[in-house]
Design a protein around this nucleic acid. Structure first.
Length: 639
RNA sequence: GCCAGCGUAGCUCAGCCGGUAGAGCUACUGAUUUGUAAUCAGUGGGUCGGGGGUUCAAGUCCCUUCGCUGGCUCCA
């Protein structure tokens, strides 16, 4: 007899070599049906694993978080099985679980999404068959022999340490796998192939290109549908689509990856910068501007010519080579170096809305999210080592204020020294500790990415979370120990000696283009009043009211509101519809009643209408809503 | 840059096995003067992404090039 301890502390006795499944069934039929794996003494294993000694177990059911990864892992096997049935020459590489689903890299003839129905039909057949999934452990030697005809598996196994190797079989299909897996294929209730793309074996361009087939799987059709709805929702928010609909920006073949901003897009752009400037001024920043085109000698000095050359646009002018800046920092270094600095001046916080160009690979361009020309809301802070902590804290506080205004929450990640890096151990120590202590004082928990820092210094990355839960890295704070050295930047200390300043690069919006794109998706095109390109649509209900409505328009414009009047000879319904489609937050219809009473009927984007609103009451509410940069669309809400 | 898919009017899309391009919306014109999500009628608008080829004939087939989409890779 052995004793099994459950998470709630209960202990039950069972016969030796009982399996997890039998334990589950002994508790309840339902648990027997819904359990798919178990945590045995802290390790997640198959439900069929036999238990030989007193153990702690936690059953994992289809309702547990761990369950979904096991499911998707099995789903990847089921997909691979279906493909090997349909494509006899297919050679399997790897098939991991990823966020939102799984993929399998397979060496096979190129396929397209039109092949999916056929594969899915085979997958569903395998699921219906409820094929038992068996784990076997065999010596490495035997595994190598078994996978003689599968070059990728063979390579993977040969790299494993000697000893036994686990393989999983379901009917004629066997795959090298650590596991665990579902008890049988019938547990995969809802599976869908998502997309296919090329991927290199081991991500190496010189190696064989494989077909990477993506899929996702859930324990129920309902969850799958919910997930597909989420993707649908994300698609609806696509800034490329909304940007065109709302006439914010466009792209043209003549300048691939370089956005053109339309007047309405520029309204948002300018408001973002206006706000940025106001907050930075409060935080003690100065604003600077450096040229876009700088000669080769500068880029050689900064190291970009050597390290970043393939991303830089270059040109020859009067026999001299020039490069269009991909980063603002070298220009910023020249600015600092253009005069002497005393320790009394430090910290110097020099902001720059800098236009940079980077020649990104054609395949990676994507709307405003990945462009070849963009503006960074850059700033270089020059300081003494003692000021690191307070300066980092200052940036974090600014980040909090600015993101908060848009209703974006965020989390922090610290990246430390990578293998390939410059600088001394001591410098890295000071810099990394400086960042850490600032983060600790700031008090928000953060994630550490060991070895993920820039070659010139450690950094803090700031990831924001949008309205539908997606995260985006926007802000970053990078300590740079290299550039001040290369440009021989100094300040005169209290000791009357020259000292090397510590420098940080930091951005908050990151790329203004990209941040604007994120905001489009975050708000789904429904910008809060303070940001809306057009805040109010004025709709006279007939031609006789046009001149009175124009007077109101002039009044509104005089107090700084952005207003459009719709004088087309269309029905009121049509005008309302168009204003709503254009996401104009407030629609004011002007009829004889309003003109007589001097009041407004105000319709908001949610379709609610308030009739007979007093003009001054309305303006008071409206102006304070805008001034406070409120995110809620309901201007009548007081908080 | 690599793989796959796509590119027809300002927008969304149709166009079969090759036979010489079509709808809705938009724009414009006219009528209608509208009370909270599409009034009616008419007119205009396309070197079918560019170049080359096959063919009596190419939006349709082939090659090439540019761009877009999804990935890979890169970047961080």
């Amino acid at each position: 007899m052995i004793n099994i301890t459950f998470p709630d502390g209960n202990i039950k006795s069972f016969n030796n070599s009982i399996t997890g499944f039998e334990v589950a069934k002994s508790i309840s039929d339902r648990l027997g049906r819904e359990s798919i794996a178990m945590e045995l003494n802290g390790v997640i294993v198959d439900l069929k694993t036999k238990i030989f000694k007193d153990s702690q177990i936690k059953l994992i059911t289809i309702n547990d978080k761990e369950g979904i990864n096991i499911l998707r892992h099995t789903a990847a096997h089921v997909m691979a099985q279906a493909i090997t049935r349909l494509y006899k020459n297919a050679k399997l590489a790897i098939g991991p679980v990823i966020e939102g689903g799984f993929y399998y890299d397979i060496d096979m003839e190129p396929i397209s999404e039109s092949d999916f129905p056929k594969i899915e039909a085979e997958i569903n057949k395998i699921i219906k068959e409820k094929i038992n999934i068996e784990r076997k452990e065999i010596p490495k030697k035997e595994a190598l022999e078994f996978y003689q005809g599968e070059p990728y598996k063979h390579e993977l196994i040969s790299e494993l340490s000697d000893g036994t190797i686990s393989i999983y079989s379901q009917a004629e299909f066997t795959d090298l796998c650590r596991g665990p897996h579902l008890p049988n294929t019938g547990f995969v209730k809802a599976i869908k192939l998502m997309k296919v793309s090329g991927a290199y074996w081991r991500s190496d361009q010189t190696k064989q290109q494989l077909q990477r087939i993506y899929g996702t799987a859930f324990f129920s059709k309902k969850e799958l549908d919910e997930y597909l709805n989420f993707l649908e929702e994300a698609k609806k928010r696509d800034h490329r689509k909304i940007g065109a609909q709302l006439d914010l920006f466009s792209f043209h073949d003549e300048a691939a990856g370089m956005p053109f901003f339309h007047p309405k897009g520029m309204v948002i752009w300018n408001l973002l910068l206006e706000y940025w400037r106001a907050e930075h001024k409060k935080a003690g920043y100065l604003e600077t501007k450096t040229p876009i085109l700088l000669n080769r000698a500068l880029w050689e000095k900064s190291g970009h010519w050597e390290n970043y050359r393939q991303n830089m646009y270059t040109s020859v002018i009067d026999d001299t080579e020039y490069a269009i800046k991909p980063m603002n920092c070298p220009g910023g270094m020249l600015l600092y170096g253009s005069k002497n600095h005393s320790y009394k001046e430090l910290p110097i916080r020099a902001g720059e809305i800098g236009l940079v160009h980077r020649h990104e690979l054609s395949g990676v361009l994507s709307g405003l999210f990945r462009v070849r020309a963009f503006h960074q809301d850059d700033a270089h802070i020059f300081m003494t080592p003692e000021q690191i902590q307070s300066e980092i804290l200052g940036v974090l506080k600014l980040v909090e204020v600015i993101y908060g205004t848009f209703g974006l929450s965020f989390h922090l990640e610290l990246s430390t020294r990578p293998e390939k890096s410059i600088g001394t151990d001591n410098q890295w120590e000071i810099a990394t500790e400086g960042l850490k202590s600032a983060l600790n004082v700031y008090g928000k928990s953060y994630k550490i990415n060991e070895g993920d820092g820039a070659f010139y210094g450690p950094k803090i990355d700031i990831h924001i979370k949008d309205a539908i839960g997606r995260t985006w890295q926007c802000g970053t704070i990078q300590l740079d120990m290299s550039l001040p050295e290369k440009f021989n930047l100094v300040y005169i200390g209290q000791d009357n000696e020259k000292h090397r300043p510590i420098m940080i690069h930091r951005v908050i919006y990151g790329s203004i283009e990209r941040f604007l794109g994120i905001l489009v998706e975050h708000f789904a095109g429904r910008f809060p009043l303070w940001l809306a390109p057009v805040q109010i649509a004025l709709l006279p209900i007939n031609d006789e009211l046009v001149s009175y409505t124009n007077e109101i328009k002039a009044d509104f414009e005089n107090i700084g509101l952005r207003v459009e009047i719709d004088t087309r000879t269309e029905s009121l319904n049509k005008k309302i519809r168009d204003a709503q489609i254009n996401q104009i937050p407030l629609i004011i219809t002007i009829g004889q009643k309003e003109m007589a009473a001097g009041s407004f009927s105000i319709r908001t984007l949610d379709g609610n209408i308030k009739f007979g609103v007093n003009k001054n009451d309305f303006l008071n509410v409206l102006l304070s809503h805008i001034k406070d940069k409120k995110n809620n669309m309901d201007i009548w809400e007081t908080k």
